[in-house]
Every structure is written in C-alpha cells, then in structure tokens.
Design a protein around this nucleic acid. Structure first.
Lengths: 220, 220
DNA sequence: TCTGGGTAGATTGGATCCATTGATGACGAC
DNA sequence: GTCGTCATCAATGGATCCAATCTACCCAGA
C-alpha cells in the first residue's frame, strides 16, 4: 500500500534548485554569507540535505565553501568576469552551431517573440529574464551535455554582474543589443551557421568590452 | 590555475582527492559502480563524507549520481568525446595565452625535459602521466580560476579514453606528438603566443580526429 | 518457456546528536 | 592606548540510527 509519499524528488536537489533561483534573482548579493541552519529551517529540512545542496551550488560556481567556516555567494573580480566572457565568446558560438540544425519552427518563433518583447521593456529585471531565456533557448537544439552544462555555469556566475550592468543602462540606449538579437534570429531561420556564430561572437565580445568600462560594478 | 584552498584536513576533500586519483589511474573503468559503504570502509570514515566526496567528483564530471540508486564512473560516447575535444581546441589556446607571459625559466626547462623524456618511454601509463603533467604545467602561468578549473575538468573526463587510445598506439608511431610538444616549448620560450596557440590547437585537433577513427574505444 | 507481480534484501537519503573548528570579545601586559 | 592572549560561543564537520526506495530474485500463471 502506497502511502502519501508525495515524491517531490530528492531534497538536496530541490533545495539546490530553489537556492539557485533565489541567488540568480539577486536575493543574495555576492559576498553574502549563507548559513546552513537558516536554509534548513526555511525548507523545513535538516542541515544534511542543505550541505549537499551547497556542494551542488559550489559546482555551479554560485557559492564558495570554506571548511569549518561557511558558505558565501561567489564574487567575481573584473579580471575573472572578462575571463568568463572570453570563454563564452569561444564556446557559445560552438554550442550554437550544434543547436542550429535542430531548432524547430516553434522555437524560432518564440525567439522572434522574445527579441521583440525585450525591445519594449522598461524593467531591467524583466529584460534579464527574457535575455537569459532567449540565449538559452537558442541553444536548445544542441543535444550536448558537457558543453551545455559549461555554458549554463558561466551564465550563472555572471548573472549578478549582468544585472548590475543592465540597471546602469538607459533602456533605449542599448539598441545595438536588440539589433543583434534580430540579426541572430534571422541567421538561425535560414540555418546560416557561419553568420549566426559571427553575430553571437560579436554580441558577447561587445558586452565584455562594455562591462570592462564599468569597473565600479566589481568593487565592494 | 586552481587556488587549492587546502581543505585537505577535511575528510570529504581527502576522500574526493584520493578517489579522483584512483579513477584517473584507471582503477575504476567507466561504467563501474561505486558503493558509498565500500569507500567509507576503505577510508575508515562514515558514509557522510563519502556522500559529499561523490558530489565533488560529480562536479568534476568523473562520476554520475542517480538518486536512490548509486554512483557510476562516467562513461562517454564518441559524440561526447568529440564535443569535449572541440571545447578543448577553443579554450586551451586561450588559457595558454594567459599563461605564456608568466612561465618561469624553471618551468620552461621542465617542459623541455618532459617532452624529451616522453620520447623515450615505452610504458603507455607513464606517457599518460607525463603528457598530463606537460600540458597542465604549460598552463601553470595562468592565474585564472574559472578557465583553469574548466580545462582540468575536461582533462579528467577524457582521461580514460586517452588511456585506451594510447595503449593502441605503437610507441614510435606517434612521432608527430613529440614534434608538436617540442614546437610548443620552442614557441613558449620566445613568448610567441600566436605560434604557441596555433600549435596547441592543431595538437588537440589532430588527437580528436585520431580518436574518431577508433569508435571501438567507446563501446561498453 | 516467457512474462508479470510481489516480496526480501541491499543501498541510498534524511534526522539527530556529538566533536571540532574558527570567530569574537574581554582581559591583562607592555 | 594598543597589542597579544585566552576563553566562550556559534557554526560547521562527522558518526550513528532510521526511513524510503530501488534492484534482484522467485514463483505463479498463461
């Protein structure tokens, strides 16, 4: 007889997933300490699954663990952020190449829709969310596990700095971003891998150079 | 490269480190199941630090965890292996570029020595060890954490397949490999980043294409 | 003989308790 | 007044026990 075991999945994964979302939403800025006990009571679990969740998030690059001391939300220096963007410049076009042949008509339409919606947004937080969905969706055709995971990790670790940067911008000021998004979708539609990869490369590179012009984002 | 905040006193790190070495040495071939209880008794510890060690190794890409079921040494398909090599082609030259300006005379001498020694070896296992030391040492000048960790993870996951491939080879057959190693050190000595990165790119690319010619390596 | 269900055993996931480590603040010496 | 030391306390690391769940095997029935 099966009792009401609500089969919610494994607790450590559930907690890791929820914590990841809340960090990505910016509820724990870089440098913030996170206590096992607090998280455990938040989720109504013991500290044990929380400890495993911390290991998962450490692997994601989201938090940094120090033995016998605690866990902190990871903080990047400008140099590390540039490093990540240079990585992204090189591997996201590769990932996109894997994805292009398998993108469905439905996915392409959604990409169009996202690119158009982003242009009308005033709220930086909403822009961040859609921009993330846009790019990750463009990789959805790739059946690669390692490459996809690597890219996702890089997106996670830079999320907070993209947020800080986005808040600085005049909503209309980054017209180039929207143009690039539209150019990218156009290239994807005709399955022009070379063009799509070139646009994406430039898109990331430009963002990297822009970020480097605001070193203040990385203080504190 | 990796900052190695010496958490060596912590059992989970010690166990993870020892297990990682033993997997890299080939003592647990891909597909092998690893039981928490066995590892725990091997190290005279309880299962708890073993569980955390498993999480660390999962992040390294060395093992795969399935909830309520167990841990297996990761197995790659040919497609995944090619994916990893394409990644390596793109990011290891970048990492090398970071490293070149900071390589010491001593490190360059050691690289020369390694390249020469490898030429004389008959034992594939020894070759693997030195080849790993050679390449990772060539990246030692890079102070990058994220990039270095990413590369190290890729090396880990492909270690077993490099081993299987190396065993196939006639020790004299891969003269090109040795030539490339010497060319690489020569370029590093004169701090010619462009040349070094090009040689390294070709080195990895050639290996990828060679691996693809032996699909049998990836069966069961 | 093959398929399906059910049960028993092995193995992992989670909770609680204890040991150990690191940080903080007070006290005393120079 | 400042620096160093020590004691206290909070937070993490680890051990043991219990619960949930998956696997493997056996047996009944077609």
């Amino acid at each position: 007889m099966r009792v009401t075991t609500t089969r919610n999945g494994v607790a450590s994964e559930r907690i890791a997933s929820a914590l990841r979302d809340s960090i990505l939403r910016g509820e724990h800025p870089p440098g913030t300490r996170i206590l096992q006990e607090d998280v455990a009571s938040d989720f109504g679990a013991s500290r044990l699954p929380v400890r495993e969740a911390f290991r998962i998030l450490e692997a994601d690059g989201l938090i940094t663990l120090v033995a016998n001391t605690g866990a902190w939300v990871s903080r990047l220096s400008l140099a590390e952020c540039e490093e990540i963007y240079q990585l992204r410049e090189r591997i996201e076009p590769l990932l996109l190449g894997y994805s292009i042949p398998n993108l469905s008509e439905e996915q392409l339409n959604r990409l169009d829709e996202l690119a158009a919606t982003m242009q009308t947004l005033r709220d930086p937080e909403e822009f961040l969310r859609l921009d993330r969905e846009f790019h990750l969706l463009s990789y959805a055709g790739a059946s690669t596990a390692i490459l996809g995971d690597t890219v996702r990790r890089l997106w996670n670790t830079t999320q907070h700095y993209r947020r800080a940067y986005t808040r600085l911008l005049d909503p209309d000021g980054n017209r180039i971003v929207h143009d690039e998004h539209h150019m990218l979708v156009a290239a994807l539609r005709v399955r022009d891998a070379d063009d799509a990869e070139r646009v994406l490369y430039g898109h990331i590179r430009r963002t990297r150079l822009e970020l480097a012009r605001h070193p203040a984002l990385f203080d504190a």
